[in-house]
C-alpha cells in the first residue's frame, strides 16, 4: 500500500472543525485514541511498578519472616532497617557495591574511550572491530560469569598462563578474602560512632576479576556511545584546530574530550545504575565470595527473600537498592525527558 494515499472513506464527523463542538467533548474526542492506548499501559506500570514498590516498603516495616505473610508493623517501624545496617554482611554489601561501581565505571569508560578513538581513527576494518568489541554486550551475564569464573579460578585460567611465564604462585583472584587499603581503623577515631562499622573499608581483591568481566561485557557499550558522538563531530572543528596549529594531543584534550563530555555523563549514569543493581554476573561468577568479599545488595535481597524467607529483611534491602538507583535515575529522567525541548 502506498504510504500517503488518501483514506477511502474518512469518517464524516472527523472532518468537522473541532471548534464546533463544546470544549469538553472536543477535547475528549481529540484525545480518546491517546487515552485508549495509554491507559492500559499506565495502569500496568502503576500497579506493577509503583504499587508493588509500595507493597515492598510495607513488607520492609512488617514482621513477615517465614512462609506465612505477616504484614503487622514492627515497633519501631524502622527496626528491620536498623538491624540490617548493623549486620557485617550488609555493611560489606554496601562497601562492595561502592567499590565495584567506582572501579567498574572507571575501567569501562577508559576502555570504551580508548576503543572508540582507535576504531574511529582506524585505517580499515572499522565495522569489524566495532563488532568484536560490542559482541559481549549481546551475551547474558550468566554466560559471561560462567566463562570468567574459570579464567579467574586460581588453579586454572589466568594462572596457567602466569605459570607458563614462570610465575608459580599467581594471585588468588576470586578466592582472595583480603581487603586492600583498609581505612576503617584510621576512620574510627575521627568518625563519631566509628565502632558501628564492622567490616574492613577497602578494596576487596576478589572484586577485581568481577570488575574486569563487567568491563569486558559493557566496554563495547561505552565505545558505541562514544563512536556515535565522534561520528557526529563536525569536521570543521578539526580543520580549525589544525589551522590554529594544535597538535593531535592538544586537539584531543581541548576539542575531542569536551565534545564527549555529555556522552560521558549519560554513560556514567546508565552504567552506574546497572552497577548498583548488579546481581546476575556476580551471582554466576563468584556468589557471595570468601567472607562476603563479593556479596552485593542484589544477592543479599535474593538470598534473604527466597532462600532464608526473611521477607522483611529482603524487602528492606531492596528498598535501599531502589533508593540508590532512584537517586541516580530520577534527576536524569527529569532533565532528559521532562525538561527536554522538542
Amino acid at each position: 500500500m502506498p504510504v500517503l494515499t488518501r483514506p477511502a472513506a474518512p469518517a464524516p464527523h472527523m472532518t468537522k472543525p473541532p471548534a464546533k463542538t463544546s470544549a469538553g467533548s472536543s477535547r475528549w474526542r481529540k484525545h480518546r485514541f491517546s487515552i485508549a492506548v495509554l491507559t492500559p499501559s499506565l495502569i500496568m506500570i502503576g500497579i506493577f511498578v509503583y504499587g508493588f514498590i509500595g507493597y515492598s516498603v510495607r513488607v520492609s516495616v512488617s514482621k513477615w519472616q517465614g512462609l506465612n505473610p505477616d504484614l503487622s508493623p514492627r515497633d519501631p517501624l524502622y527496626q528491620t532497617y536498623d538491624d540490617m545496617f548493623h549486620t557485617p554482611r550488609f555493611q560489606a554489601d554496601l562497601r562492595n557495591v561502592t567499590v565495584f561501581t567506582l572501579l567498574f565505571l572507571t575501567l569501562a569508560v577508559v576502555v570504551g574511550l580508548v576503543l572508540a578513538l582507535l576504531v574511529h581513527n582506524a585505517l580499515a576494518g572499522r565495522t569489524f572491530f566495532r563488532g568484536v568489541f560490542l559482541f559481549p554486550y549481546a551475551l547474558s551475564f550468566i554466560v559471561t560469569g560462567v566463562v570468567w569464573r574459570w579464567i579467574f579460578t586460581p588453579s586454572t585460567g589466568a594462572n596457567l598462563i602466569l605459570q607458563g611465564l614462570g610465575v608459580d604462585h599467581g594471585p588468588k583472584w576470586i578466592t582472595d578474602p583480603a581487603v586492600a587499603g583498609d581505612v576503617s581503623s584510621a576512620l574510627e577515631p575521627i568518625l563519631p560512632g566509628g565502632h558501628f562499622i564492622q567490616v574492613e573499608l577497602g578494596v576487596p581483591l576478589a572484586l577485581i576479576p568481577v570488575v574486569i568481566a563487567a568491563s569486558w561485557q559493557l566496554g563495547g557499550f561505552v565505545m558505541a556511545n562514544y563512536l556515535a558522538a565522534l561520528t557526529a563531530m563536525p569536521e570543521e572543528l578539526r580543520e580549525a584546530a589544525s589551522l590554529d596549529g594544535a597538535g593531535t594531543l592538544r586537539y584531543h584534550w581541548h576539542i575531542v574530550l569536551p565534545w564527549l563530555r555529555p556522552v560521558t555523563a549519560v554513560v556514567l549514569i546508565l552504567l552506574g545504575h546497572i552497577s548498583l543493581k548488579s546481581f546476575d554476573l556476580v551471582y554466576a561468577m563468584v556468589g557471595q565470595g570468601p567472607g562476603f568479599a563479593t556479596d552485593v545488595p542484589g544477592i543479599f535481597v535474593f538470598e534473604q527473600t527466597f532462600r532464608a524467607l526473611r521477607y522483611n529483611t529482603g524487602a528492606a534491602a531492596s528498598v535501599v537498592m531502589f533508593l540508590l538507583v532512584a537517586a541516580v535515575m530520577v534527576p536524569y529522567l527529569y532533565r532528559s525527558v521532562i525538561r527536554e525541548k522538542n
Binding site: F48, L276, K277, M321, F322
Partner: peptide
C-alpha cells in the same frame, strides 16, 4: 499526539525500566 502532562507520564513510565527488579519480586 502531544497532550499536556505527556512528558511526566512518560518519565514515570520510564522509571519502571530502571528500577532494580528486586524491589517488586515479592508482590509479583
Amino acid at each position: 499526539l502531544p497532550f499536556r502532562g505527556a512528558k511526566v507520564l512518560f518519565a514515570a513510565m520510564l522509571l519502571g525500566m530502571f528500577i532494580p527488579y528486586q524491589v517488586i519480586l515479592v508482590p509479583l
